[in-house]
């Protein structure tokens, strides 16, 4: 148990870093899920819902880049990709429920054959796609030095505003 005591003593700095590792793991799994699904949808039935499946693939790429950015501690890239994710899940989630025709969706069923990771705010993935970017942004804001976090904040605000 002396191990554990040492860890507890170091907690203030280690804790943030540790939570970040778990975040990377969850992102990696979501990246596999989103990419795997979109590759299959595009190969199997791209014509059925081209807009939705393109978005599906785009979300997969965003999750892959976010995973790498978090893992390699590329803070600016992490801010940008996670902000895109949050915008994506909110915009695509709203459209999929309010105006599914815009995305070329045939139903709002989050488990349906033309649903994406972001459809219905990620309901098909236990709403993890909605919660994860919020956790990611909170983690980025909390983990970095204040100065870095503040400048990162501005960098993240821009892409969101442009979207």
């Amino acid at each position: 148990m002396s191990d554990n005591e040492a860890q507890v003593a170091e907690r203030p700095t280690r804790r943030g870093a540790g939570v970040g590792r778990v975040l990377v793991a969850v992102y990696a799994i979501l990246a596999i899920a989103a990419t795997g699904r979109s590759v299959f949808q595009i190969i199997d039935r791209f014509g059925e819902a081209p807009v939705a499946f393109t978005l599906s693939a785009f979300s997969g790429v965003v999750y892959i880049v976010a995973t790498i950015a978090l893992g390699a501690r590329l803070r600016r890239l992490a801010w940008i990709t996670i902000s895109i994710e949050l915008a994506g899940v909110l915009i695509v989630g709203s459209l999929s429920l309010l105006a599914p025709a815009v995305l070329g969706l045939h139903s709002i069923d989050p488990f349906g054959r033309d649903s994406t990771v972001w459809s219905a705010f990620g309901a098909g993935y236990l709403l993890i796609p909605l919660v994860l970017p919020v956790l990611g942004l909170l983690y980025l804001r909390r983990s970095g030095p204040v100065a870095v976090a503040a400048s990162g904040d501005d960098a993240a605000a821009d892409p969101v505003a442009k979207l």
Binding site: N4, Q7, R14, G18, V19, R21, V22, A25, V26, I29
Partner: peptide, 13 residues
């Protein structure tokens, strides 16, 4: 990575 967070990662997986 021999930290407690790796155990949490095992659980997430």
């Amino acid at each position: 990575e021999r930290t407690r967070w790796s155990t949490v990662v095992l659980g997430v997986a």
